[in-house]
Amino acid sequence: MMSIPAALKYAKSHEWVKAEEDGTVTVGISHHAQELLGDMVFVELPKVGRSLAKSEECAVVESVKSASDVYSPISGEVVAVNTELESAPEKINQDAYTAWLFRLKPTNLGEMDALLDAAGYEKLIAEEAH
């Protein structure tokens, strides 16, 4: 399915996670999440260098409709943020999977195993729709 890439992992709170070759992971919000929120108008990103625990609130995405917290899918240190989104939050609506929010250096890469794969995430969305 186009809107849930098979190469990514997903958190129950609707973030996607991509393991990069250099050992870092990239985090964004899913296509489904941006669709629920509607047109994005503001993004607040974490500071580079901040240490995040798993499931810690670390960013905010605001649409015309509402503000929504973004949680860190795994623990780690923020090594980069996508500052481009600060002036162009609509990029999340245009392509949620290239409009990444932040990149982490994981403390424990094993936490990736607890995340959902594409099939699991698709199932979660279907369940939440009911």
Partner: peptide, 8 residues
């Protein structure tokens, strides 16, 4: 209807 695609 909340929107028909894009509220903006």
């Amino acid at each position: 209807p909340l929107h028909y695609g894009s509220q903006l």
